[in-house]
Design a protein around this nucleic acid. Sequence first.
DNA 1: TTATATATTGAACATTGTTTAATTATTGAA
DNA 2: TTCAATAATTAAACAATGTTCAATATATAA
Lengths: 206, 206
Amino acid sequence: MGTEDRKEREKEQMRQLIIKTAMQLFIEKGMDNVSIRAIAEKIEYSPGSIYSYFKDKGEIIHAIHTEGFEKLYALQKTLDGVENPVEKLAQMGRLYMKFALENRDYYDLMFIAKGVAEKITEKQEWEVGNRSYDYLRETVKACIEQGYINDPNVDAVTFGIWGFVHGMAALIIRGRCAMMPEEFIEQTVAGSLRFMYTHLITNSKS
Amino acid sequence: MGTEDRKEREKEQMRQLIIKTAMQLFIEKGMDNVSIRAIAEKIEYSPGSIYSYFKDKGEIIHAIHTEGFEKLYALQKTLDGVENPVEKLAQMGRLYMKFALENRDYYDLMFIAKGVAEKITEKQEWEVGNRSYDYLRETVKACIEQGYINDPNVDAVTFGIWGFVHGMAALIIRGRCAMMPEEFIEQTVAGSLRFMYTHLITNSKS
DNA sequence: TTATATATTGAACATTGTTTAATTATTGAA
DNA sequence: TTCAATAATTAAACAATGTTCAATATATAA
């Protein structure tokens, strides 16, 4: 009797519906203005019901968080064919920034928001994130090995480059760019990325 | 009759007491676990009283936020005597990172936390922050003018360097560094800063 | 059909920021 | 000093939050 299986499937469907609805509301009303009650109302269930599908609100957020990492990794994988590691690094930087600015709620949850990382205790939970980090790290490693980056410390360079792109994204997303007019941000970021890749990498090969 | 003045002074004292107490509790219990009631209890006042000194909780947080910028700028000013702009930039990076990691609650409020920047509508409120940003910008400008940095776009370089240091700080403070063991973080950051300044600046003069 | 397991509900709880009417304390003039 | 006016403080209440739980409805298996 496949009843058990169907039940399982329905449960998973309900979980997905909750996640989807939560994300919709996140985008619509901002991450901090979405209550369990609002999610429940939108799917026409009682607030209490949510708790038979998720332990707490944090678990919903964490599910979205994981979804975001899937999306980001999928984007990174589109660079698989790029042979030159420097070119790959440059493209990855632009791609990462694009992802961050076009999916601000996802990005916020993944890399900025409080109370998300804190609840991850099992190592396996970080896997989706580590996968993306390793993708960057391998590219940096190739740059070093092929003499494009003149620094033997793979981890320091990788973390630095990640920090560089994340830093700009985070400052923009969290509204810390009052020193420049809104319409200049995009070109400034583009200039920063160009500056970084031009000087950090190309120049140091000579 | 100096009664008016004294009243004013007492009011200011009370404001300071509230801010001080709030900051204490922030450090003690974490920024998100401090309620108005907790602050009130600690200073042995009723919760309602707080509201005759601050419009709302955001105003308390904003006061601490401003205090943080004063501290940071004071630190930056200790570099006034450094003549070589590259040296100054390198020291500023280390100093900034040190400030961030040793005053995580302040730093969080200043550059990461939500709902702080959003409430700042008057331009003058950004002054404390802009002062610090300009200090960095002037140093970068000097580096460019003296040929240490080979890129004419002052704003792009400044924003990029800020993003670079902020990015690492933010990732650490918000617990996104699970890919490396805790005890490696410090040396990795030091390595990243060194990498940045070595390659971005010194090399590009030639 | 009936008993058992499951899903869902709505009310309740504690905690939050905030408001407000009532109370208490303080002040300046008579 | 006394007393009215001003200011400061309080306690109670409000609405909204995440979460729990006993009661109810539904679906399943015998």
